[in-house]
Design a protein around this nucleic acid. Structure first.
Lengths: 275, 275
DNA sequence: ACCCACCGGTACGCCAGCGTACAATCGTAA
DNA sequence: TTACGATTGTACGCTGGCGTACCGGTGGGT
């Protein structure tokens, strides 16, 4: 974990939620942000840990995992540069309620001390609301996951999971093992292997040992049925709504912000969303 | 829907979240509360509806339901007198993100205008935090539901659902049809019928047409395996934490508050919780 | 008192995904 | 280059819950 601060341009580029803040809010926390580099599998915090830092992913992807003491566990949410983790602290509860695991190797996060951010939220209602709207988007993501888990076949849920990972990456190559996917979706490893073959047979992905390449994103969306898209559309709507509320005309989307923009901006609605 | 205001004692008794507020916060919204009586199946709001009112259940129970346009749907959360619904408005997003359906006949809710509550939250950070902590508890409930849905057999999930309903009622008799349960859990009606027979065979419940009587609560908890208890324990912890933060010594638990206290206070940890 | 719509009981074949096991392959370290 | 551990491919029987269908009982309405 190496810390490394304070070049405004770079900081803005990394996390879409931060780069969407207006100047006042941004400058409340900018001086207190530091960048950390994290490795695959690193646990930012576990359930019932005290939350010392709030993390804003740049290139990192964070999985939220609910687990019990019998070894059962399930991924409840996925967070990338569009959001942050550690929100329970922002909401007044000092402990984490689930595990947060890094899903990527060598990704970076920006972090700020919990107390600092809480103070900043106390000062700025708009900052607080921006953060809360992301939390709200996460509840929608969870709701959609529940619906998907309950009513869609594994092939669709796998397609959805791949899309969600893809949304949060700048490239088409996902480095992941079947094991991890099976843990995320709460199914057998062998079931994932089978389903990946299925999707590969349909030329939607290419799958090699340790990595999966997204070949036909639109096809994957179709394969996901209605399980993909609602949460993503909501996220866009929430951002639009927030921008409308803060009717300042300063550009909230910077050039660098467009890099992996699949889900963060309104310009590119996912192709062929059928739901 | 009949409105009927303003006798402080009664109002306090009904909703545990409100009755846990300190005097200042309570008096911010008390004058604007009105009581409404709702019928079974009534929809308080639907996904993408504007939220005009925030509802605090007294005897009513509200199910939150995520649904798509193909008729798929799933219950994502259950809210009783321990909480409220319509929180997206508190978090700065003006629309509902899921359907809210009344699960009980003749129950009552207290409601307050969205704008009024938003203003009150703007004035009082402690009020806002109290509300947000409940939202946070709901995310935990959702996480636990996801884990349960993914890893527990239907009989356990049914037991869990019955317990959650029971927690939010003052009596042991649940008026419900197999159809509704199956819709809540996202399974076949016939599967529910079978599982109810199973539980009845184990003397955990008695089941008649249109109603289910909780006979052996501890047994149900055992039947639920680890799927029941974590979210409930968290809710208690959150309340304790909030009370600690507001270190005022005024009694936050009133006598009337103890009526159906199963899940709201710390005095009665669920018997035999094994997780 | 009767009727009928609603609700619950039950059956039957089906299949997605499970649990388990083991073999084949790949990548890396020595 | 070899070897070994990690990862993936595959098989096999199993079963929980599905889809569907039909029947019978109940209770509320007229």
């Amino acid at each position: 974990m190496l810390a490394n601060p304070r070049e405004t341009g770079l900081l803005l580029a990394g996390n879409a939620l931060l780069s969407g803040l207006d100047h006042n809010d941004l400058h409340l926390i900018l001086p207190h942000l530091s960048r950390v580099s994290v490795g695959h599998g690193e646990i930012l915090f576990d359930a019932n840990d005290g939350i010392d830092w709030i993390y804003f992913p740049e290139t990192a992807i964070i999985a939220l995992v609910e687990h019990d003491d019998n070894g059962r566990s399930i991924e409840t949410g996925l967070v990338g540069r569009e959001g942050f983790v550690g929100w329970t602290a922002v909401m007044g509860y000092p402990l984490a309620t689930c595990r947060a695991i890094v899903q990527l190797d060598g990704g970076t996060l920006l972090r700020v001390g919990t107390r600092t951010l809480a103070t900043a939220c106390h000062v700025s209602q708009t900052l607080l609301h921006t953060l809360l709207q992301f939390v709200e988007a996460m509840t929608v993501q969870m709701s959609c996951s529940m619906l998907a888990n309950a009513t869609y076949p594994l092939s669709s849920r796998l397609a959805r999971w791949l899309l969600m990972r893809h949304d949060r990456m700048p490239v088409d190559e996902i480095h992941v093992h079947h094991d991890e996917i099976s843990a995320s979706l709460g199914v057998r490893r062998a079931s994932i292997t089978d389903c990946l073959h299925l999707l590969e047979g349909e030329r939607l992905i290419r799958s090699r040992r340790g990595k999966i390449v997204i070949v036909d994103r639109a096809g994957l969306i179709a394969r996901a049925g209605g399980s993909y898209g609602v949460a993503e559309e909501h996220q866009r709507a929430a951002i639009r709504s927030a921008n409308d509320q803060a009717q300042k005309l300063e550009p909230t989307v910077t050039a660098t912000d467009l890099r992996h923009r699949r889900m963060v901006t309104a310009e590119t609605p996912p192709v062929g969303r059928n739901c």
